[in-house]
């Protein structure tokens, strides 16, 4: 399935994500893409090697003087991570990180939770941490409708979850991500038969 994904975030975007320096709404979106895309998953692992290396090479002089105490290790390894509550009933169409965090299923968002915005367009806003700028939302566009969001004030990531859309640069299907900045102008139109559901993030 992931071999069909052909549109990815820019290298610099994925790199900022791996570095832990991508703003939260964009990080949510890249996380969802990475969970669906084997290529970006692997590239991110390589980018993390860069982080490990830079950390290893940090000069020791840049840190606190006092020698730290080596902590006692637990003799038995505790079970870390594991499955998060609610992961059992996730519909397979919503990327795992998003479904887990928001307790959603793509076919399970109640109809009234979608807010209508213009003709053929609905959105469901996803909460961000207090004080975080930007916006993260699920958007649903009726077949053949033009997507109304525009005027890029900054970075904008669109991840297709269902259906498809197309603009001047080509077509975007499930798992594909469009990574655009303020210089890009485009007129995306939802697929004539399927419409689309996307995860949409701005910083």
């Amino acid at each position: 399935m992931s071999s069909m994904i052909s549109r990815h975030p820019h290298d610099a975007t994925l790199m900022s994500f791996a570095a832990g320096s991508l703003p939260e709404p964009l990080a949510a979106s890249v996380s969802a893409h990475v969970s669906m895309c084997a290529r970006c998953h692997d590239e991110m692992r390589d980018m993390e090697l860069i982080g490990t290396e830079l950390l290893r090479e940090l000069p020791a002089t840049s840190v606190c003087e006092r020698k730290m105490e080596v902590p006692n290790r637990p003799t038995e390894a505790p079970s870390l991570g594991g499955r998060l509550p609610g992961s059992g009933r996730i519909a397979d169409r919503l990327p795992a990180p998003i479904a887990r965090k928001y307790g959603l299923a793509s076919d399970g968002i109640p109809w009234r939770a979608w807010k209508r915005y213009g003709t053929g367009f609905w959105y469901h806003r996803l909460a961000l941490s207090p004080g975080v700028k930007g916006d993260l939302r699920l958007v649903k566009v009726a077949p053949g409708c033009k997507m109304p969001w525009h005027g890029h004030g900054g970075a904008e990531l669109t991840l297709v979850l269902e259906g498809a859309y197309a603009d001047e640069s080509g077509e975007f299907r499930r798992g594909d991500m469009q990574d655009v900045d303020e210089e890009t102008e485009h007129e995306p139109v939802a697929d004539k038969e399927l419409g689309c559901i996307c995860l949409f993030a701005t910083d």
């Binding site: 832990g20 990080a27 949510a28 692992r45 982080g51 490990t52 830079l54 990180p97 941490s129 975080v132």
Partner: peptide, 26 residues
């Protein structure tokens, strides 16, 4: 091998930035 950086990164996001950490460990 990459855990040192990724664990430190995730702790920084959760504990210092107090934001959701979207980066999963490998």
């Amino acid at each position: 091998v990459t855990w040192i950086f990724t664990i430190a990164r995730n702790l920084r996001i959760n504990s210092l930035r107090k934001e959701v950490c979207w980066q999963q460990l490998s």
